[in-house]
Design a protein around this nucleic acid. Structure first.
Lengths: 208, 208, 208, 208
DNA sequence: AATGAATGAGAGTTCATTCAT
DNA sequence: AATGAATGAACTCTCATTCAT
């Protein structure tokens, strides 16, 4: 009735709105942790009332579940690549680094989710599934790279995959160390793997 | 009168009580995270009223600070060792593993603290200091081990120290992976370092 | 379902609600003092939950500030009048008396505020400003009344204004004396001023 | 046993201790009001534990009662004087002013008590009794001064006594006005009474 | 005569959630 | 599709009071 009422905002259908809320929630979690996540704040960041948030997500838990799904989705995208196994491996590592550098909130949220998984079976299940997929993918790539002669044949693909995952995940823990230290750890891993610096894979014999 | 009236604890002096409360808080944090830490619950676990908790710790923040101090103390103890640098290194790695296996709450709390450090400058400062000490200690041990001929001379002690820290810290993220996967990552690190399995250090040339 | 479920108030808009809460707070303060002011009680008197009170006033302090403003508003209304200076003066005195007789809570709250001003700079500032306005107004009226020949020319308008304020304020101290004694004090003041009883101003020479 | 333990402090018998606690309470009330009166604080100011305070005063109410008695005692002392009625009157006014200037806490406590009397029948009774005594004393002095020819014969001793009490009591309300304004009010009262400034009583005809 | 330790009963405040509109 | 208003339940923290020593 009154002329100053909000423009209809027809652009956003249900999914757009949900997506916007999830993104706002991710930002909030990255900044304040699950501990500091407030539905009111999330809604406000999208320009909505809290009550409206509950129209899209019945409970806070549901919103968090949305966050979990989105985080998984973004992370999974770093695994998509083509080329030789060695290339795909190298590209994956780089993609993870880029993701964490360009969207630091994703890393923060992953860390929070990892901790939350200790108390929340639903989160635990999803994270575990994702980790299994990730581990299997890495292991397969490592094996193929070994078979292709790009990596040392004695390499324990299971164990190396686990170490790679560990190192990447660690970048999600904020002040575990300075950013430089994280990079050092990461490069050391690459060195041992034979991916020295920017260039092509080093000779396989550098790995055991 | 009533038989279930709790007998007042006379045994504990001030420090015992504070310690008991800190330990209860650690257990609570490990189980429910900072998010789920409730002063009433902590007090109840020691058999006390909330008001009494505030008699020992003026605020919840002070209690958390006590938790931080205790976690640091326990972690620092894994660095105390003697023997050759290579032995001290090996013992340190094992001590951390034992600590995390025998007192899983400590790991959980470390993880929580690491995340909290992103928003709490006080926690960040303490964690950073501890990490600096840790890094310097590891680096020195690695250098000496290289000088002693136990590790490959090309080894970048800075970077390897960072990778070691990363791998150990990662054990604090609960369901990042199954326990086996964590062990794999850890053993792979030892392998690259030349500490294969239970025995003596492998020849230095296994490291680059 | 249950018949005693309170019907939600739909009548009141935001300002009405705030006003209702302030009035309830005034009544509470009058009855129990600032010492006994409980947000829960105030909310209940308006038929609301405590949480809802905090929806309108973020903190208890903000509510008290609302009380302060309202008390000042009501008191200020006793100064609004027209007629000759002598009439305005007389009417003001009567208005204050009526106010205190008809809304004794206002007097009680004024007394509480006066005491609180000793520790609360914000209250102190507002009260002081109001007193300054009051004093200036009274002084001006007295001077004009002298000029008009209604009051004795030797009268020290500053000092008489102060004494008038003092006498009126004192009516806010509950059992300083019996109501009769307060009236006596007040009438004695009027007598000295030349406003004897109900009627017109007495000849100016009765004042010094 | 240990040499540094507190000196026995034999000086203080039960009454001394109670007195010390009451005085500390008066200071606290003057500074923070009844609202901010904390038994712990009072005890600490005397160098005692809270529990010990309860040894001397079973409840907080009992302590407040002690404060009330002490305040009354101090105030009563301003009425003790000798000389002609006019002198006694003048001296009483001066004594009250001195008391309030030299022991401002007493004034503050009187103000607090006056307000509290609205809710606390015990306080109300005592205050009322004291006020009755005060009023009777003033009235008798005024009558005698009239009889002696020091004050105007038409003077309504009841009403003037009430106005005097009102003016003096008002000095207990902190920022009702600036100190100067209080003095003005007080001096105006003296002027009307015929006690101009420091000197002797003015001729009786200045009063009506 | 004195105290450290303990507590029950609240206080103000926060927040996810609901509901009429 | 959206919201203002409302709430229950819970949280941290406070304080007068008690009690064994």
């Amino acid at each position: 009735m009154s002329p100053e009422r909000r423009a209809p905002y027809r652009a956003g259908n249900r999914e757009n709105r949900r997506q916007a809320l999830v993104e706002a929630a991710i930002d909030e979690i990255a900044e304040r942790g699950f501990e500091g996540l407030r539905t009111r704040e999330v809604a406000a960041h999208v320009g909505l009332n809290v009550a409206t948030l509950h129209y899209y997500f019945p409970t806070k838990e549901a919103l968090i579940r949305g966050v979990l799904d989105e985080a998984m989705r973004r992370f999974r995208s770093t695994l998509v690549a083509d080329g030789s196994p060695a290339d795909r491996l190298r590209n994956h590592l780089r993609a993870v680094r880029s993701l964490l550098r360009e969207q630091p909130q994703v890393g923060a949220v992953m860390g929070e989710l990892a901790l939350r998984s200790a108390r929340d079976p639903a989160v635990a299940r999803i994270l575990r599934e994702m980790n299994d997929v990730w581990h299997r993918t890495l292991r397969a790539l490592l094996r193929q790279a070994v078979r292709d002669g790009h990596l040392a044949s004695e390499l324990d693909s299971d164990a190396v995959a686990a170490l790679v995952m560990s190192t990447l995940m660690n970048m999600c823990l904020p002040t575990f160390a300075s950013p430089e230290r994280k990079d050092q750890a990461f490069r050391q891993l690459e060195r041992w793997l034979g991916f020295s610096g920017t260039g092509a894979a080093r000779p396989a014999q550098s790995l055991s």
